[in-house]
Amino acid sequence: MSEKIYGIDMGTNSIKIYQKAAGVILHQKNMIAMVKKKEPLALGDEAYSMYEKAPKNIEVKQPIVNGVIADFTAMQTMIQLYFKGMHGKKFAEGLAAGGNAEFYIAVPSDITEVEKRAFFDLIASSSLKTKKIRIVEKPIADALGAGLDVMDATGRLIVNIGADTTEISLISLGGIVQSRLLKIGGTKFDEAIQQTVKKKHNLVIGMKSAERLKMQLASGIKEEEEITYDVMGRNLITGLPNRVTVTNHLIFEAMSESLSSIIDAIKFILEKTPPELSMDIMHDGICMTGASTHIKNLDLLIQQETGLSIMKMEEPELTVVKGLGMIMENPDYERLAHNLQDSDFH
């Protein structure tokens, strides 16, 4: 029988929930559609289907921006409604009345204490009253979910390229030695593609179209062969719908600046790495996680620029929530979860 112990990874692009003894029970887009800014209409993938298509009285929003909570009320509403949807009204009322559930929340390491506190307060002040709320630093959960041993004295370098952020972390002995959080990720790539297509073809396209172009044409390394993909949008001059053909070379040009910033940040962390841990990284290489690592040849780019081997995951978007699950399931990892007042968490 599954226990009332949950791990939650609230990413910019998607929300994942793990239940002890049951595994991953939710993986949806982290979006909510609100009518007149207060009535929830749709959540997750259903809300995403309305994105860029909704009338003015329906607002479709992402409650998490750049890895932190941007809309506290919307995110809290989503969490509460997800539990009602997963378990029914009776279970949700039982949680609120009994207060016997436990939650493990993943948070980025390189954010302020106030921003970390917001993740704790999100659950603590909700109708899902609990007996315990623990905070886990995302890079630690990420590394565990990727199959790395984070408890020994070996240095592990993990690069998580998500929707809004890239988090680069050096881990040893269950803690973070060095970390850097960049406001660069899949969304930044999409915005750059939008702007480049607008400039090159006088075509205004939506974020969904830009994302499709990225999925079809993007590559970390410039390819010799030209590949094309047709995209629909609004002509900037005539104002009429139009279709243009976009090449992979144009997409590479659009993304090159952001990719260079990620490479520079990885090199910065490597330069700050203590010599003994540098030896470990030379031996084991870099572990890449996050949904944006699906971009073709991105691993090859990082390998060429750093000279290090690259380890990729089959489901890079799920490593954090799986890592939370490992902490919940294995008592040996309990010290990796913290109360907000723990001195080693600050």
Rank of each mutant, 00 (worst) to 15 (best):
S209C: 01
T238I: 00
T154H: 07
Q216C: 00
T306K: 08
A218N: 04
A192N: 13
P63C: 04
E113C: 01
S343H: 03
Q303P: 00
K208D: 11
G145A: 10
D280Y: 11
F72L: 07
S125W: 04
Y104S: 07
E102K: 14
S309L: 06
E334T: 14
L236I: 00
K138H: 12
I262S: 03
L336I: 13
A163P: 02
I176T: 11
K90F: 04
T306D: 07
K38L: 07
A124T: 03
E226M: 01
S209G: 07
T319G: 06
T319C: 15
F83N: 10
V65D: 06
N242R: 08
D121V: 03
M255G: 11
E137S: 09
D142H: 15
M75K: 03
I295M: 15
E115D: 14
Q28R: 09
G94L: 10
K131M: 09
E115R: 04
L41Q: 07
E211G: 10
E257K: 12
R180G: 12
Y51K: 01
E93M: 10
L236W: 00
L26Y: 05
L122E: 06
A101I: 07
T77L: 05
S14Y: 05
L250M: 14
D110G: 05
G185R: 12
L308H: 08
K138Q: 15
A70P: 04
I135W: 09
S125V: 02
S343V: 09
E334F: 10
Q76F: 03
T228Y: 11
M1Y: 04
D71F: 04
F345D: 05
G94H: 08
Y104T: 03
H87A: 06
F345M: 12
L173D: 14
P63Q: 02
K131G: 13
E317Y: 09
Y48Q: 05
E137R: 14
P331G: 04
D344P: 00
T154C: 07
L301R: 15
N160C: 08
I17H: 06
S278M: 14
N202T: 00
Q19A: 00
D284W: 10
K131H: 10
K90A: 14
N13F: 12
M10V: 02
N66W: 05
N13C: 05
L250P: 09
L213S: 03
I327G: 12
G185Q: 10
M10Q: 09
K36F: 11
Q216N: 04
D342M: 05
T228D: 01
K16M: 11
Q76K: 15
M282K: 13
D71K: 02
S179G: 15
G44A: 09
N160V: 04
G325E: 06
N66L: 09
S256I: 07
I263E: 15
I64A: 02
I310W: 05
K198C: 01
D299K: 11
S172L: 02
L95D: 02
G290T: 08
N13P: 00
I184G: 10
G290P: 10
V35R: 14
I184A: 13
S49H: 06
P331T: 02
N100R: 12
P274R: 13
L81T: 12
A124H: 13
G233Y: 01
V197S: 04
L240N: 08
L43S: 05
G85R: 12
L41I: 11
I133T: 15
